Amino acid sequence: MRTETGTTERTHERVRLVILAAHAVVRAGLRHLLDNRDDLVVVGEASSCEEAAAMAERERPDVLIVDPDAEQITLRALPALAVSAGRIIVLTAAKDNRVHARAVQLGAAGVVCKDQPGELLVRAVEKVHAGEVWLDRAKTAGLINLVLRRQRDPEIVKIETLTKREKEIVRLVANGLKNSPIAEQLFISEATVRNHLTSILSKLELSDRFELAVYAFRHGLVDDALMHSFVLGSDNGNTHVDIA
């Protein structure tokens, strides 16, 4: 920019942002917060992962802000989105360290909780754009411990591939329910239950429902107190478990 004295004043290029959030009111609020700054500019909004991927390919934003709290936007989309977006910040209401760790594992450079002040998101954008990682200070120790646990127990990575519905079915199987009552409780067909079980066994590399029930208790997918609900008795020292 040319000044009145004829010298050239160097201007800072604005950080280009794309917002991915399912709800229009969330996108509008984020745009209002971020677009009112001289150093930031929102170049696009998207309500789905597909729309965001196309927009990132076209706009090549410096930072993509992702709200994964709606069903149609999941953390599993982060690797694909990272191909075109410079850096990714996840904005979430989730407090669970596992969600934050999963976001980082899948490519997020920053995670911001929704109950934090708006100015904190602005700072996160600035730091992430500068090449740093932004994490909630109070959660950093927990995230490090979780990463170390993953290194010790590779099964955690498998468990995180299960969908919410699949985890519900795992808990019900471990609680001794057969396909028919599971279907009734979840308001789905028995065929759908069987399909979910096939997917679960494949993801966890297990052979049958008995192995699944044992696996669920061993890896904390259900409360140990439920064990009594499907132990029916013993014969010659062998325990019988009704999970057919």
Rank of each mutant, 00 (worst) to 15 (best):
M1T: 07
M1P: 00
T3G: 01
E9R: 11
R14W: 02
V15F: 07
V15H: 11
V18A: 12
A22C: 10
H23A: 13
G29E: 07
H32V: 06
L34D: 05
R37C: 08
V41E: 10
V42H: 01
V42D: 07
V43F: 00
G44V: 11
E45G: 08
E45L: 05
A46G: 03
A46H: 05
A46E: 07
E50L: 15
E50C: 14
E50W: 10
A53S: 01
A53N: 02
M55Q: 10
R58D: 13
R58S: 09
E59F: 09
R60K: 15
L64N: 03
I65V: 09
I65K: 04
I65P: 00
I65Y: 01
I65R: 08
V66F: 04
A70Q: 14
Q72S: 15
I73R: 12
I73H: 13
L75Y: 04
L75S: 05
R76C: 04
L78W: 06
P79V: 00
P79T: 00
P79Y: 00
A80P: 00
A80H: 00
L81V: 03
S84I: 07
A85I: 10
I88L: 14
I88G: 04
L91P: 00
A93V: 06
N97W: 15
V111K: 00
C113W: 14
K114D: 02
Q116C: 10
E119V: 13
E119Y: 12
L120Y: 11
L120Q: 13
V122I: 02
V125S: 00
K127L: 15
K127C: 08
K127T: 13
V128L: 04
V128Q: 10
H129R: 11
E132T: 11
E132L: 04
W134H: 04
T140Q: 15
T140M: 13
A141P: 09
L146A: 06
L148V: 15
R149P: 05
R149M: 07
R150L: 00
Q151P: 04
Q151W: 12
R152Q: 08
D153A: 06
P154A: 14
K158P: 09
K158Y: 13
I159S: 09
T161E: 06
L162W: 08
K164Q: 14
R165H: 08
E166Q: 11
I169P: 02
L172Y: 13
V173G: 01
A174H: 06
N175M: 12
G176Q: 02
S180N: 13
S180I: 03
I182V: 11
A183Y: 05
E184Q: 11
Q185L: 15
F187C: 09
F187I: 05
I188H: 12
T192Y: 06
V193W: 15
N195P: 01
T198K: 15
L201Y: 04
E205H: 07
D208Y: 05
R209S: 02
F210K: 08
F210T: 12
E211N: 14
E211T: 10
Y215M: 02
Y215H: 04
Y215G: 06
A216C: 09
G220Q: 07
L221R: 00
L221A: 01
L221C: 03
V222Y: 11
D223W: 01
D223Y: 05
D224W: 06
L226R: 03
L226F: 08
H228R: 12
S229Y: 15
F230L: 15
F230K: 11
G233Y: 05
G233T: 01
S234W: 14
D235I: 15
N236W: 09
N236D: 14
N238H: 06
T239C: 02
T239I: 12
T239N: 01
V241P: 03
V241C: 10
A244T: 10
